[in-house]
Design a protein around this nucleic acid. Structure first.
Lengths: 205, 205
DNA sequence: GTCTATAAGAAGATAGAC
DNA sequence: GTCTATCTTCTTATAGAC
């Protein structure tokens, strides 16, 4: 990781803990191991660092979305997978996804930073809603829709079923972001949530 | 409203939009209609204004909690109410609660401020979790528990049922806080959520 | 309690040497 | 690209008159 990248990395760490306004250019420089004025050789000003973080995230998520679409369009193969999805496998899948979002360093820091800055301007509000509302609901809606098609789940309203699946996961994630010591408790609730979801929409009805 | 109260009020408005660090003492004074130095006759410093807001909220919520407990302990009368709760009434109740939390000026501004400041220190994280996790889950858990006792709802895990009821409501609320123009869409989803919740846990099973 | 004037210090950013 | 020195501006807070 070169200096320019290291600046983004350390800035993201600080922004995600204290928020943009509470982080000083000198703080970032300290952590990078240079003096504040040197930082201006890499970025025009403090705001440019913040913008570069947002850009980098947009790049990553677009990339990820593309990768998901490639898998997602192969509906026949996916349907076959979901048809054979036992409760245990669903549980494992949900837990892995949750832990990825919780523990992946970049994802976690970015989510916390955006949580702090979401009211700062309309643009950031949109980014937040796209990443944590619209994209997850549409992607998971597609997956759950496949499971409905495969007869594994039953509903006449996939959108609300998706909300019922995702909202508790999102909620538990925000708890862990705020108080990491509640991770164990949250994981336990996550398991129970998925098990109950499976029972409500799935095999027993 | 005297000057001292007006300072808290305007400060809360600004803090909830920009966050503590982005609000200057002069900004608050401007909105109150005085000059910055006059403000120091009412509060020792900027931090004291913030602390006073937190204290005032603690006062209000403790008061509210007491009032709720008085009703809540009369389980017999409540059970009677919930036994006769039709889907339409549940819908109306949920919608009213949601709109209260969304539109009540004090509640909304405080929630947004705390959202921005929740990672700033452990104390604020705890306040957030108490107000938006532990208290609602325990209060609504009690109400839903009564409905289970009354035979209106069925589950072997009231905690998860409560999570399934509350998490989508919380989630929709955060969407409206961030993008008020999505209120109509969110209210529609709220209705569908409650209706579906009622179907999953209620009469049809 | 409110004002004007101002002190004290913090923070962002630039200049110019190396 | 990194440094030291420095400028400028902004922000909190105080002093003291009314």
């Amino acid at each position: 990781m070169n200096t320019k990248e290291k600046i983004l990395d350390e800035a993201l760490t600080l922004f995600s803990e204290k928020g943009y306004a509470n982080v000083f250019v000198g703080d970032i420089a300290d952590r990078v191991g240079i003096k504040a004025p040197s930082l201006y050789k890499h970025y025009k000003n403090k705001k440019a660092i913040f913008d570069a973080i947002i850009d980098e995230m947009n790049r990553r998520f677009t990339e990820q979305a593309k990768a998901l679409q490639i898998n997602g369009t192969d509906a026949e193969a996916d349907a076959e997978i979901y048809r054979n999805l036992s409760e245990d496998k669903l549980l494992k899948l949900g837990r892995e996804l949750f832990l990825y979002y919780l523990h992946d360093d970049y994802t976690r820091r970015f989510r916390k930073m955006l949580t702090i800055e979401q009211f700062h301007d309309k643009e950031l509000a949109k980014v937040y809603s796209r990443l944590y509302v619209d994209d997850p609901l549409s992607y998971q809606g597609m997956l759950l829709g496949l499971m409905v098609s495969a007869g594994v789940l039953k509903t006449d309203n996939v959108d609300i079923m998706t909300l019922h699946f995702y909202a508790p996961i999102y909620y538990l994630l925000t708890i862990c972001d705020r108080e990491p010591e509640r991770e164990e408790q949250s994981l336990k609730m996550l398991d129970e949530h998925i098990r109950q979801f499976d029972r409500l929409y799935g095999r027993e009805s």
